[in-house]
Deep mutational scan, measured.
Amino acid sequence: KLCLVCSDEASGCHYGVLTCGSCKVFFKRAVEGQHNYLCAGRNDCIIDKIRRKNCPACRYRKCLQAGMNLEARKTK
């Protein structure tokens, strides 16, 4: 099974979405830290295992598009 954000090996369902541990922690920190990420490109950066750290804005956008939600952990 692959992470729906970066296509690395998924470690489980986190915040409602099948993700790897790295994307799970990234999403939690992004939401709780209330980061205002900005993409230096055109908001279409490739997010994969190798390049997932290059653009936090696009990675966060991809987390949201996949359906990640901090509240999902509280309902399970």
Rank of each mutant, 00 (worst) to 15 (best):
Y37T: 07
Y37W: 08
R29L: 11
H35Q: 09
C13P: 08
N69R: 13
C13L: 12
L4M: 12
C63E: 01
R61A: 15
V5T: 01
I47P: 03
C20W: 01
G21N: 05
L2M: 11
R73P: 12
G67K: 03
C45L: 00
G16P: 04
V17F: 03
E71D: 13
I47T: 06
R61D: 13
C6L: 00
V17N: 05
L64N: 07
L4T: 13
Q34N: 15
C58D: 00
C3D: 02
L38E: 13
A10D: 04
G67L: 02
D44S: 07
C58E: 02
R59L: 11
K1R: 05
E9D: 11
Q34L: 06
L70T: 10
K49P: 13
R42E: 13
E71N: 11
A72I: 12
L4A: 06
A30P: 00
R59H: 13
E9N: 15
L38R: 12
K76N: 14
A66P: 01
G67N: 04
K1N: 06
Y60K: 11
C55D: 00
I46M: 12
C55Q: 01
A57S: 11
Y15P: 05
N36F: 12
D48S: 05
T75I: 09
P56L: 09
C63F: 03
C20I: 00
T19W: 01
N54G: 06
A40H: 04
L2E: 15
Q65R: 09
Y60W: 10
C63T: 00
Q65D: 14
K28P: 04
Y37H: 06
R51W: 07
L4E: 14
C39A: 02
E9F: 06
R61Q: 15
Y15I: 04
R42D: 15
G33F: 09
C55V: 01
G21T: 10
V5P: 00
H14T: 05
K74P: 09
K74H: 14
I50G: 13
C39V: 00
E71F: 07
H14L: 06
E9K: 15
T75H: 10
N54L: 11
C63N: 02
N69A: 13
R42F: 15
K62M: 09
Q34A: 11
S11Y: 05
F26D: 00
C55F: 00
L38V: 15
K1H: 04
L4I: 15
R61Y: 07
C58V: 00
G12Y: 04
R73Y: 08
A66W: 04
G33L: 07
Y37F: 13
H35D: 13
V17D: 03
Y60N: 03
V17T: 15
C63H: 01
R52I: 07
K28L: 11
C63V: 01
V5M: 02
D48L: 03
R29H: 08
G12C: 04
I47F: 03
K1T: 03
C23V: 02
Y15C: 05
V31K: 07
S7R: 09
K53F: 10
F27K: 00
A57V: 02
C45N: 00
P56G: 07
K53T: 11
S11M: 11
R51C: 04
H35S: 06
A72D: 11
E9P: 15
K28N: 08
D48G: 03
V31I: 14
R61F: 06
C13Y: 11
N54F: 08
A72K: 15
Q34G: 14
V5I: 12
Y60R: 03
I50T: 12
R52K: 10
C39N: 02
I50A: 12
A66L: 10
G16T: 04
A30V: 14
R51H: 07
S11H: 13
Y60I: 07
C3S: 01
S22T: 03
S7L: 11
E9G: 13
R51I: 05
D8I: 02
G12S: 08
K24W: 10
G67T: 03
K49S: 10
L64K: 11
D44A: 11
E32A: 05
T19G: 03
R59W: 13
H14R: 05
I46G: 06
L70G: 08
S7F: 09
R29Y: 08
N43D: 12
D8F: 04
L70E: 11
C58F: 00
A40E: 09
V31T: 11
L38M: 14
F26I: 02
Q65K: 09
C13N: 07
R29A: 11
I47K: 04
E9Y: 06
G16V: 01
G12M: 08
L64H: 07
A57P: 04
C39Q: 02
I46A: 14
G33S: 09
C13H: 15
D44C: 13
R51G: 13
T75G: 14
H14S: 07
M68W: 01
G16L: 02
H14Y: 08
C20R: 01
F26G: 00
G21C: 08
P56Q: 12
A40I: 10
C13S: 10
C6R: 01
C3A: 00
R42V: 14
R59M: 05
I50P: 15
N36D: 08
A30F: 05
T19N: 02
D48C: 03
R29E: 14
K62L: 09
Y60M: 08
L2F: 15
F26V: 01
D48R: 03
D8Y: 03
M68F: 07
Y15S: 06
